[in-house]
Design a protein around this nucleic acid. Structure first.
Length: 151
DNA sequence: ATTCTCACA
DNA sequence: TGTGAGTA
């Protein structure tokens, strides 16, 4: 993963063109906490990593038949404090730790990411990357998950 | 020219 | 989900 891949350079119109997803849908995904584009001057900008995640998200939603809540659960399986290796003190009083129903980037001011910086946070990058990798594995080895154990 | 939010079908 | 109004 290149540093350039996390640079938010694509405006929403380009992303819509590249992915075939309506700008309206992209904005709704953001409202639902499924994506977290950068914001500059009120405008959304997406990175290469965002593009990969958005395509994965589209697969989960439209091919796999998950609903937005289901995808959110996937994003929440790894606690943010585990990804960030937060100290007990950091965890104390962190709003994201207390609210297990929402990804930390949906929360106003979580631990390390100051306002508007969630797009660059390792938690967002790591969680989306994990789901992408899991889907890749599922694609290569469809039986790896849920296959019965041999007697 | 492009994106923003909000409202509406 | 997509479109149109009115902005910025």
């Amino acid at each position: 993963m290149d540093k350039a891949d996390s640079k938010a350079v694509y405006p929403i119109g380009i992303v819509a063109e590249l992915t075939g997803i309506h700008p309206r849908s992209l904005r709704i995904y953001e409202q639902q906490g499924l994506i977290c584009p950068a914001r500059r001057g009120g405008k959304r900008f997406f990175s290469e990593n965002d593009l990969r995640w958005i395509e994965c998200l589209n697969f989960l939603l439209n091919e796999k038949g998950l609903d937005p809540g289901g995808v959110k659960e996937l994003l929440l399986v790894t606690p943010c404090w585990l990804i960030r290796d937060c100290s007990e003190e950091e965890r104390r009083g962190c709003p994201a730790v207390l609210d297990l129903k929402a990804p930390c980037w949906e929360i106003n001011s979580c631990c390390g990411s100051r306002e508007g910086k969630c797009h660059e946070c390792t938690v967002y990058a790591e969680r989306t990357r994990q789901v992408i990798e899991a889907m890749k594995r599922l694609d290569e080895e469809p039986r790896a998950v849920g296959a019965p154990l041999k007697p």
